[in-house]
Amino acid sequence: MRGASQGWRAGLIGLAFCFVPPALATEVRIATFEAVGDAIPAPLDGLAGDSTRGQKLVRDRETGNCLICHQAPVANEPFQGDLAPSLAGVGGRLSVGQLRLRLVDQSKLNPATLMPAYHRVDGLTRVAARYRNRPVFSAQEIEDVVAWLATLKE
């Protein structure tokens, strides 16, 4: 399902990691945020999310790969996991801020959670070189996915 442009982009990122020390790569940056209760009310870096991009990230096996564990109401996805709660209706159950915190770092709510922290790079062990010092999602990608999840009202 990956388009040529995505392949091209992945190739470029691969190239960047051959020649650019990870510390200089833009992907490394982790947004600062303030949690209030079980939510991060403000968008990361004040960015606006795009729900269309968000749905793509949720399905993409190379990035979010959310459907490896979760089921979601999307067409043409026969292989969906069932380790984690279904995403159907999650936008009705949780506020945007609650979704954001659970994506950024669910372990702040439950240290034993199976859910990976999608916007954190510290406290990890034996990370493969190509993923080292890179969060799963950038701040923009977090906002995109939050925007799509918020549309899942039923």
Partner: peptide
């Protein structure tokens, strides 16, 4: 031990799920 960018241990899948 939890490991990797996804921070998952063997046990979390092969015992718990």
């Amino acid at each position: 031990e939890r490991q990797g960018q996804l921070n998952v241990s063997c046990s979390q899948c092969h015992d718990d799920n």
